[in-house]
Design a binder for these strands. Structure first.
Length: 575
DNA sequence: GCCGTTTTCGGCCCGACTGTTTTCAGTCG
């Protein structure tokens, strides 16, 4: 993804927030939000576009195009700077607290001069909000709860941001003379859903050129520590990056060591002890002679311990070592196994790209099939109608097979009501090739009602996949409360797949839920829920999550040949 | 601020929930 697109997206979103906070025209704020999203999701690099080219992007008009040009030329936009001068950055941070929007943020700032999340938390603790209009007891409670949720993320960053940063740095350091190997390790290589800091490893004889290269990158804001073996920096986005340079002969041992997890490493080191070996980041050594017996590659190190190579996504000490010893490691699903995406949107509802553009992009990924699943009518803001979705079906049928023979499936994303019903009657639903059904409201039902609701959705003969099942947003919203074992059992019983939603802020189901669901014999669908062409590439995060849940290709319905998938979708027991 | 037109102005993502201001503003999906 072009960096300029992301920068401009962030800038326009910031301006939209500032307009909303300062009480500007709500439609103006929304116009900037829409433009931000459109530019962020635009497949081409905007830094090569002129004003006319920019205006060809939907929701970008003359005024915004001018501001983008101003930004690309000078690095700033005057009107944004003006608003920034009026509103401290911390005030904008306030609206990231769930249940706290621009109006309340502005009141807190104007009346109490609160301009950071920590100040707000302190003010509530000190009962300083008592006389403030609109901040009753319950509101304060909700805000504190929201702050706690944010703090639980604990400064960890979402995986996709970490991966983008890491890949850029790896690309840079790989160019440095003397670089034998370079990659990222740590929780990022294990593809955990959030990342604390980024570990980069280099294999080279001399470390200094790499340390210097890292310190002088344009994205480096601060050098935290500088040494011969390890250097730590903080990027302009506030992410800590640790670089370690290893002797080329230690590459495998170092990679294994720095990939972790800590618990996995403790187990591997313990295994080494019995045959008289010692495992460190420099190699596997014979305790008696001190001689290295393996270190060049991870495969070699694991093999010398009597283990097969273990995929990084499994290295969490969740039984992978024991499984490896027994020769029962799962052959985890890979991105290459996935034959199609079964949950995607177009600009008929809230997607950014046309049906044709999405289909073309999907075909370029080499998919054998692809489902379009726009929102159904009960998500009122999307204004779906029978006519619109049927017209889309016609359009889709006309495109079917036109791109590298990729087959198109017409679907929809239904809304599961509080009672567990979905949008259309069965007679209409039967016309779809597949139906995803998801929760979009009523997240706070009690456990029994929520469980019943989800089970009822599974029992609907037209519902094939439960989309983003827990509806959590990482660092923002916890998943809904349900008796998941009962839901998983219902999925297995009814032939309803559970989605592994690959959006990096969802990753829903999460790895641990997948492990549990798998015990019930549930099948899964790894879907991107793409709202733009670029989102199709988020599949990697969903696949990694599936791997962390120990899934094989056989567990994942969208790795299956179309014929087998269709039998599953028929939901009549033949799948 | 964007868009489409009924072309320079009026509509734009609608409806529900929540808490509180007891008649509705703020937030969310």
């Amino acid at each position: 993804m072009a960096r300029a697109n992301e920068e401009v997206e962030a800038l326009l979103q910031e301006y939209a927030d500032l307009v909303a906070i300062t009480g500007g025209d709500a439609f103006k704020a929304r116009a900037y939000e829409k433009a931000a999203r459109a530019i962020g999701g635009h497949p081409a690099d905007i830094s090569h576009l002129d004003a006319d080219g920019l205006r060809d992007i939907p929701n970008v008009g003359r005024s915004i195009a001018e501001k983008v040009i101003e930004y690309l030329r000078t690095g700033t936009v005057a009107v944004v700077e003006e608003r920034r001068a009026k509103i401290p950055a911390g005030v904008r941070e306030l609206i990231t607290i769930p249940t706290l929007g621009p109006k309340k943020a502005m009141r807190l700032y104007e009346d109490l001069h609160i301009s950071s999340v920590s100040e707000l938390a302190a003010a509530i603790e000190a009962d300083a909000l008592a006389d403030l209009k609109g901040f009753g007891e319950k509101t304060q409670e909700n805000i504190l709860h929201g702050i706690r949720l944010m703090q639980q993320a604990g400064g960890r960053i979402p995986i996709h941001l970490a991966l983008d940063t890491a890949e850029e740095i790896v690309a840079e350091l790989s160019q440095v003379t003397g670089c034998k190997r370079c990659t990222y390790a740590g929780s990022l290589r294990r593809m955990r859903e959030t990342i604390g800091d980024i570990d980069i490893l280099v294999a080279a004889k001399r470390s200094a050129p790499f340390m210097e290269a890292l310190e002088t990158l344009p994205s480096t804001a601060e050098v935290i520590a500088h040494g011969e073996k390890k250097t730590s920096i903080r990027t302009t986005k506030g992410v800590q990056v640790d670089l370690r340079v290893l002797p080329p002969d230690s590459w495998g041992a170092g990679l294994q060591y720095f990939t972790g997890s800590k618990a996995h490493n403790i187990r591997t080191r313990t295994i080494a002890v019995r045959p008289g070996l010692k495992l460190s980041e420099y190699g596997l050594f014979d305790t008696g002679s001190g001689e290295s017996v393996a270190s060049r590659s991870e495969e070699e190190v694991y093999a010398r311990l009597g283990l097969p190579w273990i995929p990084p996504t499994l290295r969490e000490d969740r039984g992978e070592i024991q499984a490896a010893v027994r020769g029962e490691l799962p052959e985890v699903v890979t991105e290459r196994d996935v034959r199609g995406d079964l949950h995607t949107h177009t600009d008929l509802t809230d997607g950014l790209a046309s049906l044709e553009a999405m289909v073309e992009a999907a075909a370029e990924r080499g998919y054998a099939y692809y489902a379009v699943t726009d929102h159904a009518p009960n998500l009122y803001m999307q204004r779906m109608t029978d006519e619109k979705i049927l017209a889309q079906r016609e359009e889709l049928r006309a495109l079917d097979g036109a791109h590298h023979g990729m087959r198109l499936l017409h679907g929809t994303e239904l809304n599961i009501s509080a009672e567990g019903d979905v949008d259309w009657p069965g007679a209409f639903l039967v016309g779809f090739d597949l139906c995803v059904a998801s929760l979009h409201s009523h997240f706070d039902l009690d456990r029994r009602a929520m469980t019943r609701r989800l089970v009822r959705a599974c029992e609907n003969p037209h519902v094939n996949i439960i989309g983003h099942p827990t509806t959590r947003l990482i660092g923002k919203r916890p998943g809904v409360d349900a008796d998941w074992d009962e839901v998983f059992a219902a999925c297995a019983r009814t032939g309803t797949a559970l989605e592994i939603n690959a959006q990096p802020d969802r990753l829903d189901l999460c790895d641990e839920d997948i492990l549990r669901a798998r015990q019930h014999g549930v099948k899964f669908a790894v879907n991107t829920d793409a709202h733009s062409v670029l989102h199709l590439a988020h599949l990697r995060y969903g696949v990694a999550t599936a791997q962390r849940g120990w899934l094989t290709a056989d567990d994942v319905i969208n790795t299956w040949p179309l014929r087998r998938l269709r039998r599953f979708l028929a939901k009549d027991g033949s799948g």
